[in-house]
């Protein structure tokens, strides 16, 4: 588990934990739920080219930090052994977040039930 993700006060709050917190260079990301478009399990996304790493880490099998590709900024904080949760955003610095979490399917359901109609 690389991140703890919760919904608090109509915000999606992502807290990188442990060593990944240092590598991802982020204390905490808080996104208003109105800027969250949806969440998906997406195993293949970590096998794709991630683009240029801005600040972040380059440990093999572990992606943390900001990556730029096709004019989009994506925040990664995930190990290759984790099931990736992809969270699509709008009107935010990041176009999407790619996260490793403890219970990925439950998180995807939770987010989608808050933002999809």
């Amino acid at each position: 588990m690389e991140n703890v993700v919760n919904i608090q006060n109509e915000q999606l709050v992502i807290e990188p934990i442990g060593l990944t917190k240092i590598a991802a260079l982020k204390e905490r990301i808080a996104i208003p739920l109105t800027h969250v478009v949806g969440a998906s399990i997406d195993t293949g996304i970590i096998n794709e080219s991630k683009g240029f790493r801005m600040p972040g880490t380059a440990i093999p099998g572990y992606w943390a930090g900001t990556f730029r590709k096709n004019d989009e900024m994506t925040f990664f904080n995930i190990k290759h052994t984790s099931l990736p949760v992809v969270i699509q955003l709008k009107d935010e610095k990041y176009t999407r977040l790619v996260l490793g979490v403890d219970k990925p399917r439950e998180l995807v359901t939770l987010i989608n039930n808050h933002v999809l109609s």
Partner: peptide
Amino acid sequence: YSEFGSKQG
């Protein structure tokens, strides 16, 4: 993702 938001979308 930009068009539909998620696989569920």
